[in-house]
């Protein structure tokens, strides 16, 4: 009983083990696997990232007013869903220009609410993608 009293007194003056998260932000490592980011000017529209992604989180869908890149022959636009992605990095490894067109940052994805239509909005894009094949 005496030893537990000494231990309790020593614990009073130690630093706590908890990090109070929303008040003090936690710094992430440089190599953390976060969101995928896209640079539109250097893309050559080879579609290798779309074939390499296991769950299919990147889709190229035809739109009416496409971008003015000269490599964009079929009039496609890039769509990415961070709620389907598994953050593995296969698309970055398959891209022929990994630093200018597609890269993986160390930012964390955002939390969404009901009105963002995360699941039902993606079914429309999948239907459009299947029609153009």
């Amino acid at each position: 009983m005496f030893t537990s009293f000494i231990k309790a007194l020593a614990n009073l003056f130690k630093k706590p083990q908890t990090i109070d998260y929303p008040v003090t932000p936690i710094a992430k490592d440089k190599e953390y696997r976060g969101l995928i980011e896209y640079g539109e000017e250097s893309c050559i529209y080879c579609l290798k990232c779309e074939h390499a992604c296991p769950p299919g989180a990147i889709l190229f869908v035809p739109v009416e007013n496409p971008s003015t890149n000269e490599k964009n022959k079929k009039g496609l636009a890039y769509n990415y869903n961070p709620y389907l992605c598994i953050y593995c990095g296969e698309c970055v490894r398959a891209c022929p220009k990994p630093e200018e067109a597609l890269w993986q940052s160390n930012k964390k994805p955002d939390v969404a609410v009901k009105s963002d239509n995360v699941n039902s909005g993606w079914f429309e894009l999948e239907k459009q993608h299947k029609e153009q094949l």
Binding site: Y21, Y83, I86, Y87, K108, D110, V111, A112
Partner: peptide, 12 residues
């Protein structure tokens, strides 16, 4: 509320 990530971290 939708929380993403595979597996999502305790901060999210």
């Amino acid at each position: 509320v939708y929380v993403p990530g595979c597996a999502s971290s305790p901060e999210l």
